[in-house]
Nucleic acid binder design. Structure first.
Length: 183
DNA sequence: GCGGTGATAGAT
DNA sequence: TCTATCACCGCC
């Protein structure tokens, strides 16, 4: 298959402004090595959570055990559980900020499962809170480079209406025209 | 549209 | 201890 030689993204890929990282992640690959083989998809939708001053960001509630990973070094995974059911995976950019991965275009090992939505893609890849805090430049969970970059569109973030004017800022990014984005 | 589900943070 | 809240999804 075409993914035999994956080029892992270096950890400092994420050591840039959060909105820059959110855009740069589009088109790259998210890979999970599982006991039954690799599962990977191409990132087609992200959201930037800018840090403690961003009222939609978890870190705006303070630096706690849950959000500690977001204050750590860039290039690590922040995984949390919402509504008791769904895991969401983020790429930490540091200082309490992170990029939520919202949708993947399935590439390999996903057996036709949908990856359009943060809860769906973690379920399909098998990502759980066990991955919280892990570096994203080595197995089992890592980012890999992919050459394809298409037009990027942006809009308000999903599901953060309670964050007032922060909910309206255009911090959601997605590949224009992709049938694999959520919503 | 609505409920499931459980961790979290803050109040009691 | 109790309670409100929550970056969602699947089925009605």
């Amino acid at each position: 298959m075409a993914f035999r030689r994956l080029q892992v993204l270096p950890r400092d890929f994420a050591a840039r402004p959060t909105d820059v990282v959110a855009r740069a992640l589009l088109g790259q690959l998210l890979v999970h090595h599982t006991p039954t083989g690799p599962r990977l998809g191409r990132i087609v939708e992200t959201e930037a959570y800018l840090g403690p001053h961003d009222l939609a960001c978890h870190s705006s509630k303070g630096r706690t055990a849950r959000t500690e990973v977001m204050f750590g070094p860039p290039g690590h995974a922040y995984v949390f559980l919402v509504y008791g059911l769904h895991h969401c995976v983020n790429v930490v950019t540091g200082g309490g900020a992170a990029v939520l991965i919202r949708a993947l275009e399935p590439c390999s090992g996903l057996d036709g499962q949908r990856c359009d939505g943060p809860g769906r893609l973690t379920r399909a890849l098998g990502v759980t809170r066990a991955h919280d805090g892990l570096p994203l430049d080595q197995p089992p969970l890592f980012l890999a480079a992919a050459p394809s970059v298409r037009a990027i569109a942006s809009g308000p973030r999903i599901g953060v209406d309670s964050a007032g004017e922060w909910a309206r800022k255009p911090l959601r990014f997605f590949e224009k025209g992709s049938p694999f984005v959520s919503g």
